[in-house]
Design a protein around this nucleic acid. Structure first.
Lengths: 187, 187
DNA sequence: GGGGAAATTTTACAAATGATAAAAAAGGAT
DNA sequence: ATCCTTTTTTATCATTTGTAAAATTTCCCC
């Protein structure tokens, strides 16, 4: 996936403004299992996924929960680092070998103070992510685990193929054993 | 609470920029029970709460879930209307008589295209809301219902005083009966 | 202050989910 | 292909949470 497609899908930019962003972007490649962002660090980059799939998870004591998956075209970001300059709550792990576009947040911050179109791009990005999370929070309470699984299966069937079910279960807010039961029902 | 305090708490603005917003704001007052925003409408205003408390809830069939409370200083907004010009998923109901600052979204949109400081203000607003929702989504999965209740009790003790427990239960993702059980434990 | 509606708690029972352990299946590396 | 690790499923039992209905308390309006 091309970086300009990714940027324009968030909010269409003029060639001039878009170039200001792409000029700061470098391509990187990391292997499956690599930790792209760490909860214990203040991160200085965000990434756009050219190819591959990743997950964000929070750790607590001995268990972890996956609360986000990113695929081609998605933006990888530690919101807490990016917004508040504090350590985040999430590790981000590559679930496949990934090609990524890297952008230093310092560059983005400078652009947010210089180009109003880019600022609107950043605003729109946060707003869209906000809606997605809000919808998930609501679904979490309205729907049963098995409804949530079936909806995920319909909206993102490739996810179930590409990602271990343990992560999917955690994303759905249930244990892997529960998910296995749900999958058995359907058959 | 003064409107300039509310605006600056989101992101500090120069007097000039802040005035551009406040010039578009009018004060309104509505009684307890009033529906400020409706899920079935594309809303054209956002509000800042001067005084009072409100809740956002989504309806489905015969049950509803409260997924947000707003108090003095908070911003009331139908994200879907505001971002995507589509009908939202939430009704917003006043839980007390409220004094509100009203701002037409058309004015805000115009300002987002004209004043980069206001655009950054809007970006910061969305980012901060995003972090709050993300943290709630994670808490929903990490913590038990009774932990979530106790944390709410600690962080927002006044909420339990001002809001019917049925709404609190729904906000916590449990039934009112469950919440009653949890409250009985503690005593 | 009293009456009635709304909110909250309690109870009993049913259903869903979690924890744990172990077996089965799938996948990767050599 | 085979061994070994990881993933997924299955089974059992304990716990949590939901549903429904009734009892109790609180609140609000007149």
């Amino acid at each position: 996936m091309r970086v300009d497609e990714i940027l324009d899908a968030i909010y269409p930019l003029s060639d001039a403004s878009r170039s200001k962003i792409t000029d700061c972007i470098t391509e990187v490649r990391h292997p499956k299992g690599h930790l792209l962002l760490r909860a214990d660090k203040i991160e200085s980059s965000i990434y756009f996924i050219k190819k591959g799939i990743v997950r964000a998870y929070a750790q607590k004591a001995d268990n972890e929960i996956t609360f986000w998956f990113g695929r081609e075209g998605d933006t990888v970001i530690s919101m807490r680092s990016y917004v508040q300059d504090q350590r985040g709550y999430e590790d981000i792990e590559l679930l496949e070998d990934c090609d990524l576009y890297e952008l230093k947040t310092e560059h983005l911050r400078a652009l947010f103070n210089a180009d109003i179109h880019i600022t609107n791009w950043g605003r729109r990005f946060a707003e869209q992510e906000l809606i997605k999370v809000e919808e998930r929070l609501i679904a979490q309470q309205f729907r049963t685990a098995s409804e949530r699984y079936r909806e995920l299966l319909e909206s993102h069937p490739e996810l179930i193929q590409r990602v271990p079910l343990g992560h999917i279960a955690s994303y759905l807010g249930i244990t892997q054993v529960s998910l296995s039961r749900i999958r058995a029902e359907v058959r």
